[in-house]
C-alpha cells in the first residue's frame, strides 16, 4: 500500500509537472518558429532595409520591404487608443474607488467586464458601420477605412483593462495615507491628485504599458476598420495598415509556404512579438516590484 502510494506520488508530480512545462515549450515554440522563418527572411532581405525602410510593397513588383509604414500605422492605433482609454479608464477608476456608491459600482463593474469580453471582431464591425459614419459627419473628408475609428474602438477595448488595473492600484494605496491628506483639510481632488496618484504612480504606469501593449497586438478591429494601406504617413483620417492587419491580409490570400510573402508574416510577427514582450516585461516587473514592496 505504502509503496503504491509512493509510486503514485512520483507519477502525479511528473504528470502535473510536465503539463506545466508545456507552457515553457509554448514559449520556446513561439521563439523557434518566429526566429527560423525570420532568419530565412533576412537571407533574402537585409535587416536594415526591413527595419528602416519606409516603403512596404511586398506583394507588388518591384518588391520593397521597409516595415516602417506598418510600424507607424500600429503606433497611430496605439497612441489614439491610449488617448481614449487612458483618460476614461483613469477617471473611471477614480470615480469607482473614491466617489461611487456601492450600487454604482455594482453597475459599472459588470459593464466593464462585458466591454472587455466582447470579441474584437464585433468592435471592428462597430467601427466600420457606426463610428466611421458618425465621424464622416464631423470630418467629411474621412476615408471609409481610417486610423481614427480603428483607434477609437481599440481604445474602448482596452479601457476596461486600464480602469480595472488602475482601480487595483488605487486600492493598493493605504487608507491611512488618504486619511492623512483629508485630516489636513484637503478635498478629494487634492488627495487623489497629490497623494493617491503619486503613491500609485508606478502601478498606474504599468497599467498603461500593459494596456498599450494589448492595443499593439489587437488584430481584427483594425483589420476591418483601419484599412490595408501601408503608407508611411500620419493622418488619422486616412487608411493605414497595422502589423497585425498585414499578417491577416497575407493569410487570407493563398500564399505558398516558403515564398518571401509568407516569410514577411513571420518577420513582422517577430517585430510585434519583441515589442509587446518588451512592454509586458517592463509592465510586469513594475507590478512585481511594487507588490513585493507592499508586502514588506
Amino acid at each position: 500500500m505504502h509503496r503504491y502510494a509512493k509510486k503514485m506520488e512520483i507519477l502525479a508530480r511528473t504528470l502535473l509537472g510536465s503539463c506545466a512545462f508545456l507552457s515553457i515549450l509554448t514559449t520556446i515554440g513561439i521563439i523557434l518558429v518566429l526566429s527560423t522563418e525570420t532568419i530565412e527572411f533576412f537571407g533574402q532581405v537585409s535587416p536594415l532595409d526591413f527595419l528602416f525602410g519606409t516603403k512596404w510593397e511586398p506583394l507588388l513588383e518591384p518588391k520593397s520591404f521597409g516595415v516602417l509604414p506598418l510600424v507607424s500605422g500600429t503606433l497611430m492605433i496605439m497612441v489614439g487608443s491610449g488617448l481614449i482609454a487612458i483618460p476614461i479608464g483613469l477617471f473611471t477608476a477614480v470615480y469607482l474607488s473614491e466617489y461611487s456608491s456601492f450600487r454604482t459600482r455594482q453597475i459599472i463593474k459588470p459593464v466593464l467586464e462585458i466591454l472587455a469580453g466582447i470579441p474584437t471582431i464585433v468592435y471592428g464591425y462597430f467601427a466600420l458601420t457606426f463610428i466611421t459614419p458618425v465621424l464622416k459627419n464631423i470630418f467629411p473628408d474621412i476615408e471609409v477605412f481610417n486610423a481614427l475609428s480603428g483607434a477609437i474602438v481599440v481604445g474602448i477595448m482596452i479601457l476596461p483593462m486600464v480602469s480595472s488595473l488602475c482601480d487595483d492600484a488605487f486600492q493598493g494605496v493605504p487608507r491611512q495615507l488618504k486619511d492623512g491628506g483629508y485630516a489636513l483639510g484637503a478635498t478629494s481632488f487634492e488627495v487623489i491628485g497629490q497623494v493617491v496618484i503619486p503613491a500609485a504612480a508606478s502601478r498606474i504606469m504599468a497599467a498603461f504599458i500593459l494596456a498599450l501593449s494589448r492595443a499593439i497586438g489587437e488584430t481584427m478591429a483594425v483589420t476591418l476598420a483601419a484599412g490595408a494601406t501601408p503608407i508611411f504617413r500620419v493622418n488619422p483620417l486616412e487608411s493605414i495598415q497595422t502589423m497585425t492587419a498585414y499578417i491577416v491580409q497575407v493569410s487570407l490570400g493563398d500564399t505558398p509556404a516558403g515564398g518571401v510573402e509568407y516569410l514577411t508574416c513571420f518577420a513582422v510577427a517577430s517585430l510585434l512579438f519583441v515589442i509587446t514582450l518588451f512592454m509586458n516585461v517592463i509592465g510586469q516587473s513594475i507590478m512585481y516590484r511594487v507588490k513585493k514592496k507592499a508586502t514588506r
Binding site: 500593459l210 488584430t219 514582450l277 509586458n280
Partner: peptide, 25 residues
Amino acid sequence: KLIEINVSNLAGVPSIVYGLLGLAV
C-alpha cells in the same frame, strides 16, 4: 518561478502570434 513568469508573459502575447505558431507547428 520560471514557469510562473513564463505564463504571465504568454498571457500578453498577441493572439495572432499564436496563429503563426499553430500554422507552423
